[in-house]
Amino acid sequence: MPLLDHLRFNAILVMIEIEKGFTKGFQMRMFKAWANARPLATAFLFLLVAALYFLAPIVSVDPSQLFGNGERDVGAESFAQVLWPEIRLAAAILIAVVLIGWVRRTRLATWPRWSTLLLTVPFIAFCIFVIISPILVSESGAADVTLTQADWQSIWMACLVAILVGFFEELLFRGVVLQALLTRMNGGLAVIIAAIIFGLFHYVNWVSGQPLGVTTMQVLGAMAIGLLFGAFVLWTGSIWPSIFLHGLWDSSVSVSQTLQANVSPTGDVAEVIFDPWSALASPPMIYGVLLLVLWVFFDRRKRKATSV
Results as ranks from 00 to 15, higher is better:
Asp5Cys: 01
Arg8Gly: 08
Ala11Met: 09
Ala11Asp: 14
Ile12Thr: 14
Leu13Pro: 02
Met15Lys: 05
Met15Phe: 09
Ile16Val: 14
Lys24Ala: 06
Arg29Ala: 10
Arg29Ile: 03
Phe31Trp: 08
Ala33Leu: 10
Trp34Met: 05
Leu40Ala: 11
Ala41Asp: 13
Ala41Ile: 04
Ala43Gly: 07
Ala43Trp: 00
Ala51Phe: 08
Phe54Pro: 00
Phe54Asn: 14
Pro57His: 08
Gln65Lys: 15
Phe79Thr: 05
Val82Ile: 14
Arg88Val: 15
Arg88Ser: 12
Leu89Asp: 03
Ala90Asp: 02
Ala92Leu: 10
Ala96Cys: 10
Val97Glu: 04
Arg105Trp: 06
Thr106His: 00
Arg107Lys: 15
Leu108Ala: 03
Arg113Pro: 03
Thr120Tyr: 04
Phe126Ile: 03
Cys127Asp: 02
Cys127Glu: 02
Ile128Ser: 10
Asp151Asn: 11
Gln153Met: 11
Ala158Lys: 02
Val165Asp: 00
Phe167Trp: 13
Glu169Trp: 02
Glu170Lys: 02
Leu171Arg: 02
Leu172Cys: 05
Gly175Thr: 06
Ile197Asn: 07
His202Ile: 05
Val204Trp: 12
Pro211Gly: 09
Thr216Ser: 11
Val219Glu: 08
Val219Leu: 01
Ile225Leu: 15
Ala231Gly: 09
Thr236Val: 09
Pro241Val: 06
Gly247Leu: 04
Asp250Arg: 07
Asp250Tyr: 04
Ser254Thr: 06
Gln257Phe: 10
Gln257Arg: 03
Thr258Ala: 10
Leu259Tyr: 12
Ser264Gly: 06
Ala279Trp: 00
Ile286Trp: 04
Gly288Asn: 07
Val289Trp: 09
Val289Ala: 11
Leu290Ala: 13
Leu291Tyr: 03
Trp295Arg: 07
Val296Asp: 03
Val296Trp: 06
Phe298Ala: 01
Phe298Arg: 14
Arg300Cys: 06
Arg301Tyr: 08
Ala305Glu: 15
Val308Gln: 12
